[in-house]
Design a binder for these strands. Sequence first.
RNA 1: GCUCCCUUCGUCUAGAGGCCUAGGACACGGCCCUCUCAAGGCUGUAACACCGGUUCGAAUCCGGUAGGGAGCGCCA
Length: 466
Amino acid sequence: MSVRTRFAPSPTGFLHIGGLRTALFCWLYARRHGGQFVLRIEDTDLERSTEAAIQQILDGMKWAGLDHDEGPFYQTRRFDRYKEVIGQLLAKGHAYRCYCTKEELAQLRADQAARGEKPRYDGRWRERTDARPDVAPVIRFKNPLDGEVVVDDVVHGRVVFQNSELDDLIIARSDGTPTYNFCVVVDDMDMRITHVIRGDDHLNNTPRQMNMLIALGVAPPVYAHLPMILGPDGTKLSKRHGAVSVLQYRDEGFLAEAVLNYLVRLGWSHGDQEYFSIEDMVRLFDIADVNKSASVFDVNKLTWLNQQHMMRSPAASLVPVLRWHLSREGIAAENDMQLERIVLSQRERAKTMREMAANSAFFFRAPAAYDEKAVRKHVTPEVLALVAEAGRQLAQLEDWSAPAIHELINGLALARGVSLGKLAQPIRLAVCGGTVSPPIDATLEILGREESLSRLHKAAGLWGAS
RNA sequence: GCUCCCUUCGUCUAGAGGCCUAGGACACGGCCCUCUCAAGGCUGUAACACCGGUUCGAAUCCGGUAGGGAGCGCCA
């Protein structure tokens, strides 16, 4: 039987980092076993589900590159099917109508709380066949009264629940709409899901779902409950912890591959390996190796990994990403070749693509001002003369390439008996306005002869006058 | 409150009875390299939650305690 996994987010908010990891694990598992990955939107909560959230989730999945083979399926379009199954359950005596009002249930819970008991439905309509004309009934699943349910979880191992701890959950509201735990069961059954991989906040729901599956005459799938991802303070990841939407990571200049690499290492490892390409993950990842304990999200490590991916990816693959970030800085960059050279020279000095774009703006815009402190430090009358000489020689340089520029500038510094820095810093200041840039030869090469000399002259004139 | 889950450096993790004076990575400190900033190399600080038990021997097995998390909804 071929492996079928599913990712089933509810569109009540954006796709967050925890959801993305669940999706990643489902996707990896399906890919690794040559199976199918199904996307399902759990939008039965009409109140809180939004179209915008659905789009956000789809965009996030697309950005991450987690492509699905089937779906997206929407639960709101499957209401007829849920009704049909509820009918079956009712007919076979696995479900019943409960005419309790919300007030009665609230009272029941209050009484139980007062007695220090676990709040649970007491089954008072379980064996009744009469009705209450003034109350629209809900439908409850008739959970077995005794015995136990064993969840053989791939990550947690054998977990046993007593049926006596479980009450009869509502599967259809009084308005007839089905509830979450029931829809999941029907969907997983209909979509022939073989492996349910989800957050371990669902572990407690699992025995109920298994009981329903059994009542429907279906063998339960394999379950794997993933540990949660916590914020830096050890509490559940939330808005307080900064970026939560995966698209926010894209905007901040993180590479999808790096985010995935970071997430796969949360709760899972393969020896001492830290860097994983997507292919590595598909080849090496196995849910059985996932840890049981929750882990804390660490932006520092994500950032480091991001730079690792920037440095190891083919430069050409980063060109479109750099262009996108430059455009967000208001810069329209056309030349692919030039962008590739920028990537090559900048990637070891930027941790994110956004940072690379910001650091590279000077290639497209002449400096509007110069770092004053640096000018005071690096520009003196002697240096000015030296820079002027460099300008003259550069103008004559036949081959405008980094090696040739390197040779020229080094040679000049050597001939004048000054350190390279003495000459390189003022030139750097003149062409980019600050003290930080790629090596001066590469910087000038990318900038081009005309632009380099023009900036040099402009700066020299300015500094010479003052 | 009840049920279930979890517990190795600040963080992510290795570890499945002797290989552990507990390894790697991020972060942090130092040194080297160096035209700036980085990247890179070397290096330092830093952990088995606690208490019992089993065993010749326990981070690893068992029991308990403490701490954290989740679920207990006509939410998903």
